[in-house]
Amino acid sequence: MLGWAIILGFIAGSLPFSVWVGHLLLKRDIRQLGDGNPGATNVFRAGNWKAGILALCLDYIKGLIPVATAYWGGGIRDERIILIFMAPLLGHQFSPFLKFRGGKGIATTFGAWTGLTLWEGPCILGLFLIFFYWFLDQDAWSIVLGMTGLLFYWVIRGTKTEVYGAALFNLWFVLWTHRMALGGKIRLKRHYGIFKGFISTRL
């Protein structure tokens, strides 16, 4: 069962829903927009929020279903689930439908964490991402530090070995997928509004 779960998880993750949504609904190749990433963000950049939400949900589901099916349905509740957690993320990154090129897998990551921990993982990760997106001027660093924050959360909270393993793999995954954008110093944003009078410096 484990082997089939990994294979099916990889296949599910490799389905380039955002690219297909772009072709079918927008008649555009979203990889020609923005950063060229075949993910939901570029569907939103194409100017159609409804198509963007559809792509986002589909990318989320392809991470959710393989992990949830194995963990809650198949009773794989030990270190083996880490391999199944990895499968849709690696499928998204190395999609055979896109000549083994893929996206950064943020929506798929949230789906996989939902499948493994229900609300807890995605909510904590989301809070960390909101925090770092608010203060940092670089999306790549925000994602890496958000994932690092989730790992430390699990360490402080105390959890199962498979959750630690999934968090360590996920941190490696975001470091790999964002490696080209992590150069240079971390820059802070300038904020006003509710932080009136606060002016951040640039590091």
Rank of each mutant, 00 (worst) to 15 (best):
Q93A: 11
Q93N: 10
F94Q: 02
S95L: 09
P96K: 11
L98S: 13
F100C: 08
R101Q: 15
G102F: 01
G102M: 05
K104C: 04
T109F: 04
G111K: 06
A112N: 02
W113E: 05
T117F: 05
W119L: 08
E120G: 12
G121Q: 00
G121L: 00
P122L: 11
C123K: 11
L125F: 07
L127T: 13
L127I: 15
L129W: 07
L129P: 03
L129M: 11
I130A: 11
F131Y: 15
Y133W: 10
Q138C: 11
Q138H: 14
A140R: 12
W141G: 08
W141R: 14
I143W: 04
I143R: 03
I143Y: 07
L145C: 09
G146K: 00
G146H: 00
G146I: 00
M147H: 01
L150W: 05
V155Y: 01
I156G: 15
G158Y: 09
K160N: 08
T161A: 15
V163Y: 04
Y164C: 06
Y164Q: 07
G165S: 15
G165H: 11
G165N: 11
L168E: 08
N170F: 12
W176T: 13
T177W: 00
H178N: 15
M180N: 14
M180C: 15
A181C: 14
L182Q: 02
L182C: 08
G184E: 03
K185Q: 14
